[in-house]
Design a protein around this nucleic acid. Structure first.
Lengths: 150, 150
DNA sequence: ATAATTTAAATTGTGCACAACTTAATTGTT
DNA sequence: AACAATTAAGTTGTGCACAATTTAAATTAT
């Protein structure tokens, strides 16, 4: 393993800039939907699984309440979601799509196509890259497990 | 190209979480150096190229003055760097390592080794992943070029 | 040479991201 | 049943990240 302090040789830096630049690509696409990138991720979860509670939402997105509480508050202000306490467990806050929030899904349907068009990437490469990224996360989780064990 | 709105199928989401989780891995490693992840990236650049100006620093890290100005101010407070106006162009601010900042390099030398150990990754895989990430960035830049052309 | 344009930093404002803490509800234990 | 421990959200504080604006210096054009 090459060990230097050169910026370009560090995988963390490449991940960090690739993520930032890809997010930048989304900005103009999401602007007409009136969503930031993080808000878009929350909407993706809700379109899949409406009526999820904040805790589960945070687990899916790797975000804690310190990030999600104010973010959801903004989505409420826009009018895409509403929240209420769960009846069977008063600690839990359930997030639900409003009609406008559900309707937005139609508009968002072609976002992935737009993005892959911009990236100009073929299916096989796309799949290979997805596997690499999930593998990196697996390695990170494995390390977390090993740490927790002892 | 599979086109769904499923969170896990979106490359942006995988990049975003992989980047966040890898950064989380760095936190405890960088804590004894008294650096955040972004501050660490700035120090990496300076250890390579001391006396760089803010503009070039921003180009290397894809960060603008709105991020870098306060970040460098914090590095000055810690005592790792100092800044001064360039003599030949008074607009430019040059950032230089202090003795403490230079000395920190020794301590940082084994950070990459610690990280790759935690990731438990072999050289060939590491190289493949780096190539994937630079390819993603190339595709992003290529799109930027195409946009600018017309 | 002067005016217009461009460039470099800094500042302001918004929105994440996360650690640390608080509050309230639920679950477990004795 | 009463108390302790755990869990879910929310709040506070710090530090990015970036758009938009401001200020000052340097270039370019006329």
């Amino acid at each position: 393993m090459e060990q230097t302090l050169k910026l370009e040789h560090q995988i963390c830096f490449q991940l960090y800039t690739a993520s930032k630049e890809l997010t930048r690509l989304y900005r103009p696409i999401l602007e007409p939907l009136n969503l930031t990138y993080s808000q878009y991720l929350v909407m993706l979860v809700l379109w899949e699984e409406d009526g999820i509670d904040l805790r589960q939402l945070g687990t899916r997105l790797t975000l804690d309440s310190g990030t999600l509480s104010p973010l959801v508050k903004r989505l409420i202000q826009i009018g895409y979601v509403e929240k209420s306490r769960s009846s069977d467990d008063e600690r839990k806050v359930v997030v639900r799509l409003t009609d406008r929030g559900s309707a937005l899904r139609e508009q968002a349907m072609d976002v992935p196509l737009q993005v892959s068009g911009m990236l100009n990437i073929d299916e096989a490469t796309y799949v290979a890259y997805m596997e690499m990224l999930t593998d990196i996360k697996t390695r990170l989780h494995d390390f977390g497990e090993r740490q927790r064990e002892q």
